[in-house]
Design a protein around this nucleic acid. Structure first.
Lengths: 88, 88
DNA sequence: TTGGACTATGTCATTTTTGATCATCCGCAT
DNA sequence: ATGCGGATGATCAAAAATGACATAGTCCAA
């Protein structure tokens, strides 16, 4: 499923034009991205929760050169599936 | 951020009633849940991708009894943040 | 429709998650 | 506004993800 598939669902279920449906999807995704950008957690019961956690990883590996690589800290988005997504 | 926060964004940006805005959010989340239920992966460029992967974990732990617990296989939803969510 | 931009894949060592359970906290439907 | 059902945190050991990079594959804006 890609973004356009979701847009089509909106079109069918609401009768909106493709552009209007696309706008709906973008609005929702953008508001979620913005919340995460502000280090805010998101919790949607029955779907999932997302939250920002500090990144501590220290090493990785460059396969080609077969040597370790230093990984800088930062932030990560932690995802946790909600109940509905656990019953799969 | 909770579901209602997203609904409010839709209300403001579109002028929809709360109920209509809520319906939009539900429609989108449900279509995503349904896709995952069908073992379908979801890929939204710039946001994130979700896909179903087999659960292989074999052990867990019961704190109270302090002993290992066998964990049965199943499915998991793997989440990968898109580019926009990595620039946080 | 097309190509530019973004994602998947494969690799290794270290970091992080997983999973059951209970109590506490909180989303959100009524 | 309330309460019910769902989510979080803590715990430990084993299992899986992370991260850089190049290539192949694909999403999606114009």
């Amino acid at each position: 499923m890609i973004k356009n598939d979701i847009v089509q669902v909106i079109e069918k279920k609401t009768g909106f034009s493709r552009m209007k449906a696309l706008k709906m999807v973008e609005l929702i995704l953008n508001s979620m991205k913005e919340a995460l950008s502000n280090n805010e957690k998101i919790e949607i019961r029955g779907f999932a929760s997302f939250k920002i956690v500090p990144k501590k990883s220290g090493f990785g590996r460059d396969i080609r050169r077969k040597k370790q690589i230093r990984i800088k800290g930062g932030k990560r988005v932690k995802f946790r599936p909600g109940q509905d997504l656990k019953k799969l």
